[in-house]
Computed example of a mutant assay.
Amino acid sequence: MRIVDVCAFYTPRGGGVRTYIDRKLQAAGRMGQELIALVPGESDSMVQVAPNAWIRSLATPTFPLDPRYRYFHSETQLHAALDELRPDFVECGTPWSSADMVANWRGDAPRALIMHLDVFATYPYRWLGKMMDQKSIDRGFDWFWRRLRRLGREYDFVVCANNELGTRTANGGVPNVVIEPMGVEPGVFGPDRRDMPFRAQVLASCGLPDTATLLVGVGRHSPEKRWPMIVDAVTAVGYDHDVGMVIIGEGRDTPRIRKSIAGNPHIRLLEPTRDRAAMARLLASADCMVHGSESESFGMVGAEARASGLPLIVPDRGGMTDQAAGGMGWSYKSGNGPALTSRLRKVLGRGLIAPTRARSELAAADVRTMDRHFEELFTRYESCFARRRAA
């Protein structure tokens, strides 16, 4: 079966979506599929990246709010590419304009909308959550709920990667919702990557002894990740506990994050790396992950942390809640800085990280892999394609 993934969020400098698509391209051929990622790029090109897997780029404009990204701007251009590629199944990875373009394509292939973005948690819930309850926000943004319901009727599947997003989307009246959790790259992350001398070096770079607690955060520097809130909370508990933190990422919010750190020597910003072994060592060598975004569609960095044996401190909404489930971490009221500070104080003050980390290390081998996700997803697609062809 030839699958074309129309992925507007793909960029070589991207984060979780790029990791997901790259792994899917590698896995497709082994699983008997032919996969083409159709992405916005600098120029038109078609590059084979694995057996039976290609990246097809369309020349597109730069996204004004983030120059790392480009966007599909022409429905005619996108439809011509789909006509050329002749897919048996089409995926679309965003509920924005490219979802309409894919829905309007006149080909007869079945299609799935992949919710790589939790629009409500990323924008209106975050912007208005301190002033209005969720039901009131939903009523005010009913125009977007109507859009999602229409897309749900036009697509064979609306694929959500976490339970909270899937349940909320279905309860909002969107049809054809399925929950298909993603996963981690197999064989990359694990507690055995823990490097105690390296951990001591990282803590020393934070001006702390190796007896201190090392926290880690991973994600792009954008407002929905709430890094200043995390920095403020870690700084506050640092008056009572030896605690350091490294934050791995980049983005347009970097100046704001640096300002919130304001010379605190115990918190460091690190550049992202594409060296997966180096990332696996860093995660396993930390003691706990702290995350601030309630808008994660899956929470891949959380899954990677869990596969590394780390406990997590996460918001009580969004994809990261699934990663901290089963006694592998703690939650706090999303978007609430004092609640995060209180949770950190309790966890550190009661010495909860070490025993929770021991349990997490034992459970790390059971973390779901991306290949398991792709096997289930492709099986779902094949069944839908077979039904469509028989009809």
Rank of each mutant, 00 (worst) to 15 (best):
G263M: 03
G263A: 08
G263L: 09
N264S: 13
P265A: 10
H266M: 10
H266E: 05
R268C: 10
R268K: 15
L269A: 00
L270N: 05
E271N: 14
E271I: 01
P272Y: 00
T273W: 08
R274Q: 12
D275Q: 02
R276H: 11
A278Q: 14
A278G: 11
M279Y: 07
R281V: 13
L282R: 12
L283S: 02
A284Y: 04
A284P: 12
A286V: 03
A286D: 09
A286C: 11
A286M: 06
M289N: 11
M289G: 06
V290K: 07
V290I: 15
H291S: 13
G292I: 12
G292H: 12
S293Q: 05
S293M: 12
S293C: 09
E296H: 12
S297W: 09
F298K: 07
F298M: 10
M300A: 14
M300T: 14
V301D: 06
V301A: 15
G302W: 08
G302H: 11
A303Q: 06
A303P: 09
E304F: 14
E304I: 08
R306N: 09
A307I: 02
A307G: 06
S308R: 11
S308M: 06
L310D: 00
P311S: 01
L312W: 00
L312N: 02
P315K: 03
G318L: 09
